[in-house]
Deep mutational scan, measured.
Amino acid sequence: QNEKLANELKSLLDELNVNELATGSLNTYYKRTIKISGQKAMYALKSKDFKKMSEAKYQLQKIYNEIDEA
């Protein structure tokens, strides 16, 4: 289960640069939040902690959705 979550989180991290570029014309909230979420996700992957990875995955998905809707 950890392996599956780690792969999903890696996949979301692969999209980080594209989504970060998409924040160029948006409010600074999005820029700041996506950077923080990305850092948390990288830390969670290194720690291999299921709870941290779950939270990081949720945060990344949430900010990606917010950027898409903005």
Rank of each mutant, 00 (worst) to 15 (best):
V18A: 12
E20G: 06
Y58D: 11
L26C: 09
K4D: 09
D49N: 08
A56V: 02
T23L: 10
G38E: 06
E20C: 14
L12E: 01
G38W: 14
A70G: 04
L16D: 01
Y43L: 13
N65T: 10
N2H: 14
Q39H: 07
L13Q: 00
E66K: 06
N19E: 05
M42T: 05
G38H: 09
K10D: 02
Q39L: 12
N65R: 15
A56S: 04
Q39G: 04
K35V: 08
L21V: 08
A22I: 10
Q61M: 11
S11N: 11
S47K: 06
K57D: 00
A6H: 06
K62Y: 03
V18T: 10
I36Y: 08
Y43R: 13
Q39F: 09
Y30W: 09
A41T: 01
A44C: 04
D49V: 03
E8L: 05
L26S: 04
L12W: 03
A6N: 02
I36Q: 08
K10G: 03
K46V: 08
Q61P: 00
S37I: 15
L45E: 01
I67Y: 03
I36K: 06
A70N: 03
S47Q: 07
N27P: 14
Y64I: 14
Y29E: 04
I63Y: 01
D68Q: 15
I63C: 04
Y43Q: 15
G38Q: 11
K51H: 09
M42K: 12
Y29W: 07
D49R: 02
I67T: 02
G38C: 15
L9A: 00
Q59V: 08
K31V: 06
K46M: 12
E69P: 03
K4F: 06
E15K: 15
E15W: 12
D68A: 15
T33W: 14
D49S: 06
Q61D: 04
L26G: 03
N7T: 12
N19V: 14
L13T: 01
K31R: 11
N2Y: 15
S37G: 05
K57I: 15
S54Y: 09
N19C: 14
N17Q: 12
K51V: 11
R32G: 04
K57A: 09
V18E: 13
N65Q: 12
E69K: 12
S11W: 08
L12K: 00
S11K: 14
E20S: 09
Y30F: 10
K51F: 08
D49H: 03
E69T: 12
K51A: 10
Y30M: 05
A41P: 02
L60F: 01
I63R: 00
E3T: 09
L16Y: 14
Y64V: 07
L45S: 01
N27L: 05
E15P: 01
Y64C: 06
I63G: 01
G24I: 14
L60W: 02
K57G: 02
K10N: 05
E69A: 13
L13I: 08
N17I: 13
S25D: 06
A22K: 15
D68F: 15
N19R: 15
A70K: 08
Y43V: 13
L12Q: 00
L12C: 06
L45Y: 07
K62N: 05
I36C: 11
V18P: 04
Q1P: 12
T33L: 15
E69H: 10
D68V: 14
K52D: 05
A22W: 08
Y43I: 14
Y29G: 03
R32L: 12
Q39D: 08
Q1H: 09
N19F: 15
I67F: 04
I36M: 09
N7E: 12
G38K: 13
G24P: 04
A41D: 01
T23E: 04
M42I: 12
N7Q: 14
V18D: 08
R32Y: 13
R32T: 11
